[in-house]
Each structure stands twice: as C-alpha cells, then as structure tokens.
Design a protein around this nucleic acid. Structure first.
Length: 155
DNA sequence: GCCAACGTTGGC
DNA sequence: GCCAACGTTGGC
C-alpha cells in the first residue's frame, strides 16, 4: 500500500466537499501532467491513502485523509469540448489523460498548515515543501504520512 | 498582484 | 535535440 499527497484548490474542490459526499466517490479529474499521469497508472492502487492538500488559498495545508477508490482510468473531461480540461489531441481509443476516483476517509481534528509542515524537521524531504514543486500529486512515505496524521490529531 | 520556478511549445 | 519564449502554479 502506498501513500500520496493530492493538491486541490479549495475554491474548486475542498476536503469539506469530499466529506459531504460520504461514501460516494469523486473523480479526481483534470490532471494534465505526464509525470502525474504515469504515477497514477503505474504506482497508484485502489485502497491507497492520500493526504488532501489545499493549495493556492489563504491557508495552505493538509485538511484530511482520502482513499484512492479506483484504478487509473480515462478522464472523461479530455473528450468534453466544453470542459476547461478538453484535449482535442486525445483519442477515445487511446486516452491521453487518466484519473482515479477518490473517497473521504477520515477527518483531522485540526488542519495541518504548510507552516507546521515546514516546522517539522522529519518532513524536510517532502516534495511539497521543495521550492518550485508543481506536481499535483506526489508520493509520500508511510513515515511522513503517519507524522502528518499525528499532527492532525489522528494517530 | 507579484514573482520564482518549472513544464511545454515551437522554431531552427 | 537545443533552447528561448511562453503559460501556469502556488506561496506570499
């Protein structure tokens, strides 16, 4: 089982939005980066856990935990001419972009701010904390995952 | 709104 | 295949 960190802009889709879905899954659409696509395709497995990170907002940080709820599959928004994620170069027989479904897994007692993450020396290696990191999904180690859950008040 | 950093594009 | 220009991301 692997662990991930998934970024989302809370204005677009927040951890609260995911919680409100309860057991229903949500397609994590809109990934348009080859590195991230390949990671979803080759390494991500149904049942993996992910940290839900809020980016580009007043208080960036980890809001809670989600579960990867499907294997990677074609992202339908690439075929939707009205979608901002439309890719006219992608063919149905050979989809260029993939997504996974995600589902709410557990809440934190408290939001773990980016500042708090930076303040924890054991997290210094995390990609998210590196300058210029722009991947919307990154792998985290089990150790990092556990530390952040603990910081959120959930062992 | 600014700006550093990065991925992608396209001319050559 | 190089690399400058451009667009986007994301923290501040």
């Amino acid at each position: 089982m692997k662990y991930w960190l998934l970024k989302s802009e809370p204005d677009v889709f927040s951890f609260d939005d995911l919680r409100k879905l309860g057991k229903k899954t949500e397609p994590w659409s809109g990934v348009r980066n080859y590195q991230v696509r390949n990671m979803m395709r080759d390494e991500m497995k149904e049942g993996d856990l992910g940290l839900f990170y809020h980016s580009s907002c007043p208080q960036p940080g980890v809001a809670g935990v989600l579960k990867i709820a499907s294997e990677a599959k074609a992202d339908p928004t690439q075929f939707d001419a009205k979608s901002e994620y439309y890719d006219k170069g992608s063919k149905k027989e050979e989809p260029r972009w993939l997504l996974v479904d995600v589902a709410w897994e557990k809440d934190f007692n408290e939001f773990v701010t980016l500042e708090a993450l930076r303040g924890e020396p054991r997290l210094a290696e995390m990609l998210i904390l590196r300058k210029g990191n722009r991947l919307s999904i990154t792998a985290v180690t089990k150790k990092e995952f556990d530390i952040i859950c603990k910081m959120g008040g959930k062992a």
